[in-house]
Nucleic acid binder design. Structure first.
Lengths: 244, 244
DNA sequence: AAAACAATAAAAACCGATATATTTAACTTT
DNA sequence: AAAGTTAAATATATCGGTTTTTATTGTTTT
């Protein structure tokens, strides 16, 4: 199965500094990939607001590219559920709704419960270590860049995703991983749109560690339950913002 | 009012009579959609063989369109796991493998088990009737067009998908439905590629009816078990062809 | 005034040509 | 001969303009 078009940084590259610099300098990614990544980010961040019309000509100017990369990127975003398309009358940013979020949460729980279960069943010692290290790294990064008011920390966002994806990485199904990935990104969008007041007062790091512990003790049911609780708690804040 | 004489009519537009009126009313499909549907079919049927390179220029000639619709269709097929893309070096048909099929089957069982369960929990009387009618219609259509040797029956294929999608239709998650749909199409591809010898000797209609009965009696566990058995049995034939 | 129609404006879809990158082949150099 | 280098051929990616379709506006008719 193919990875995300924008994802060119598998962890095993980190040690090969030579290759890294070559890739970085050549920067041989296509316009399409660049526009895709940027537009995705713009939708997730809310800069491109839900439900607005995406006019090719405007996007062309905005991203300084021709029509082809724009249209291709939009096609890809369509399959990621960030953009909707109607034949002959263009594209628009997917809408968000309270019901949509409910569905997202529900589906995420179903899929990740299974994925985590299977991952625990199949994962070996190496996987356990990856989980431990992902949890540790996440714990060292502050959730917000400011202590007083919430300012999203990009580094935390990356580490958080890494942790959750590592948990389920050994489920034995690239398909399922891809689905979970797509839903995870949808969830980030809702979190971002909900804004700063969704900043949790509770100890999220503690929740992550509990999940980690359950995983290491190979307790499938407990781990799955903790994970689902974790998602439900986080969602509570997002939802309270959304209904306003 | 400059009416040009340069009128290149695509001949494939004139062959429909019943559908023509429906299409004419509102549904004017784009080139992209048409090419997308056709290429998808060509990959599923095996006319476009697994792993072959998809050269834009060849496809252009083959489907009689410009580059834009081709590239857009390919982008869409990428998200359906039928086509793979590598930046700056084009597209190719996704490969198939025994392991890939195992993964597919596994994932399908996980997702459909959950979807069916939820559907039984949420579905109302109207849904039950839809299931009954889908099963009935399927039962009236022969699996093969010939009685002696297997000739795929397009009508059966449609009714079969309809039955299985109806079963899970009330799961309460469009996301999950979409995932199941994508996996179902992947499965059709494997079935087609496996060829005629995967023609089952067993009574498939009976299996469908058993699932139907379990659904109507709202027996989640039984229904899910029967569904998974059904998939496993069908897969046995496909797999026996695949290893050759 | 509401509906039907026509003319205009706007936007999407599409094409063909050009620019950019990759692969292949031929030709050195070690 | 293997490895490296360069040049030609091939294919991808991209652009900007043209055609087709949809949306808007204004006018006529009922």
């Amino acid at each position: 199965m193919q990875d995300d078009a924008s994802n060119h940084n598998p962890p095993e590259l980190e040690d090969k500094s030579v290759l890294a610099s070559i890739c970085a300098s050549n920067n041989t990614t296509s316009m399409t990939s660049r526009v895709y990544a940027q537009m995705k980010q713009d939708i997730i961040s809310g800069r491109l607001e839900p439900n607005i019309k995406l006019k090719i000509e405007s996007l062309r100017k905005e991203y300084n590219v021709g029509t082809s990369p724009i249209r291709e990127a939009l096609s890809l975003l369509t399959s990621d559920y960030f953009v909707e398309r109607i034949d002959q009358r263009g594209f628009r940013v997917s809408n968000v709704s309270s019901d949509g979020f409910d569905e997202l949460l529900r589906t995420r729980c179903w899929l990740e419960e299974r994925a985590l279960s299977e991952s625990i069943a199949r994962g070996n010692g190496q996987w356990e270590e990856k989980v431990v290290i992902a949890n540790y790294r996440l714990s060292r990064i502050p959730r917000s860049e400011s202590k007083n008011h919430f300012v999203a920390n990009e580094q935390w966002e990356i580490a958080h995703k890494k942790f959750h994806m590592t948990l389920i990485s050994e489920c034995g199904s690239p398909f399922l991983l891809k689905f979970c990935d797509q839903l995870y990104e949808q969830n980030i969008r809702y979190r971002q749109l909900a804004g700063s007041s969704a900043y949790p007062q509770r100890d999220v790091a503690e929740e992550h560690s509990s999940i980690c512990d359950a995983v290491l003790s190979r307790n499938k049911d407990l781990a799955a339950r903790l994970l689902i609780d974790h998602y439900n708690k986080t969602s509570y804040f997002v939802k309270s913002e959304l209904v306003k």
